[in-house]
């Protein structure tokens, strides 16, 4: 069983929901990334989504755009991201790690080389924001053969017909975008998400995580009962950036990860 499948099976057994933090690898400093990943896990994260920096992050709001820019200023490459995951994996063999980013860095490395190296590094899934299923068949086969789940997005605008098509190609979980907009947007509509999730669940048994616009315990707790997991990105990155850079990396990581502890408490309540 894959790490992702094991985590979702365990959560279901325990009646709990996955808490999925998103950070951008190498932001604000490459040396902070692995300590932060461990702290997020110790504060209650079940799955880690690690952003692969890209020069043109089209789907991101301002907070995550800046995170990508800082990581690129630190010369973070896809190869380096894989090295950071391998470093994390050396002391955590169970927490799933999903890379989230844009098609071009992976395309440039080559899907086969990426799949081989990501698998060796201990990556569990890949979510490529700008690769809808129509363009993803070959990549999905290569990834699957290497034991990596290709994670797809579902949006408020996704038709029932497309939900079926996407679900048939997907594995691991599906990532439901809560609203029409970019990451970190402030117009989450719980009623609309509720309706969308109901129609998604008519077409698939895959676990569904929901992201975009979840910023605190209250918004996470409102959505968690409707799905299998919630993703927190922009709000966490704001916390990370706000930490005192005079602290050492472990201390900074611990301070930032407090947000995850707060959200854990809220969704478990």
């Amino acid at each position: 069983m894959s790490r992702l499948a094991a985590v979702f099976a365990k959560l279901e057994q325990d009646g709990r929901k996955a808490l999925v933090p998103y950070i951008v690898a190498g932001d604000p400093a490459p040396a902070l990334t692995v300590p932060l990943m461990h702290e997020l896990v110790s504060k209650g994260a079940d799955i880690l989504e690690i952003g692969v920096p890209f020069s043109d992050p089209m789907a991101e709001g301002p907070v995550i755009q800046l995170a990508h820019e800082r990581a690129l200023a630190n010369k973070v490459t896809l190869s380096m991201v894989l090295e950071l995951v391998a470093e994390f994996r050396a002391t955590d063999s169970t927490t799933p790690v999903v890379l989230m980013g844009y098609a071009n860095p992976v395309e440039h490395m080559g899907y086969q080389q990426f799949a081989d190296r990501a698998s060796a590094a201990g990556v569990d899934g890949l979510l490529t924001v700008d690769m809808p299923p129509e363009e993803a068949e070959q990549a999905t086969q290569i990834l699957r053969a290497a034991g990596i789940d290709n994670i797809f997005l579902l949006a408020p605008t996704t038709s029932d017909e497309r939900i079926q098509k996407i679900a048939s190609l997907a594995s691991g979980y599906l990532y439901c975008v809560s609203l029409n907009g970019v990451t970190g947007a402030g117009h989450l509509n719980v009623a609309a998400v509720t309706e969308k999730l109901a129609s998604i669940k008519r077409h698939t048994n895959l676990p569904i995580t929901v992201g975009f616009g979840i910023k605190d315990g209250a918004s996470a707790a409102a959505l968690a009962p409707l799905c299998e997991g919630v993703v927190v990105g922009s709000a966490l990155i704001e916390r990370i950036v706000a930490t005192d850079s005079a602290l050492n990396n472990t201390e900074r990581a611990a301070v930032a990860a407090e947000l995850i502890a707060e959200i854990r408490t809220a969704i478990d309540a």
Binding site: V129, P132, E135, F152, L153, A155, T157, V177, N180
Partner: peptide, 20 residues
Amino acid sequence: ATGHFGIYGGRFVSETLIFA
């Protein structure tokens, strides 16, 4: 029919925009 010129072109956007 899928918007490709050989290997080029296509539709590499986030899911939200596919409908549009």
